[in-house]
Amino acid sequence: MLNSDPTPTVDDTLFIGGQHYQSRLLVGTGKYKDLYQAKQAIDASGAEIITMAVRRTNIGQHQNEANLLEILSPKDYTYLPNTAGCYSAEEAIRTCRLARELLDGHNLVKLEVLGDEKTLFPDVVQTLKAAETLIRDGFQVMVYTNDDPVVAKHLEEIGCVAVMPLAAPIGSGLGIRNPYNIATIVENASVPVLVDAGVGTASDAAVAMELGCDGLLMQTAIAGAQNPVLMASAMKKAVEAGREAFVAGRIPRKRYASASSPIDGTFF
């Protein structure tokens, strides 16, 4: 008799900062038409961890505008406040402290310190400096960094709970530009490695997962798609497929063919 569920179930969760997550896809909450579309897309993506930004309140205007934390309640999602737009360690540290106050002591943050407006590449020196202070201050730091295995290891050693190399510049959709470096970072790491930035479409997400990444964080590839909700669903499947393929273990690449049907028993 056929097994009714032939898919082997593996206890394969993402473990970050002391919490288990079923989904390996982390998504942003910005760039959508409105917060209702954001919620639809996020729910289609299956993401449990979602990012947010910290900005000044618009004093005296738009007070009735829908609030992110009301539409997407912190009771239903794990928030990952980011330090997007910060170009120094000091700015990033202030942003994280404000985020912690906003979220009643929640201390998981995405640290990104940018070094250049054109490429949005990280400023690694400032990032390391900010990470050290934040970790001393009790934050659990998921850190955006370059696809540099040496820097990734340093960030892990100083206590970051996850290392998140870019695959290509933020919002570029160029895909996994340096798969060998991403694979090296994964091989060296003993904390989760998540590709953060650069994914353009579902196959890019699958490639990152097949390289052994523990997860992916994306925003523009979903929110910027013609149909963000459908793309969110595609990304969910790609991340799951890529992960299963990685765990299953792919065949080695060979230059020449290897027949799929047996040679024994041929009658010609």
Partner: peptide
Amino acid sequence: IVRAIGGG
């Protein structure tokens, strides 16, 4: 005075 907004 700051608040949470959508971001990636």
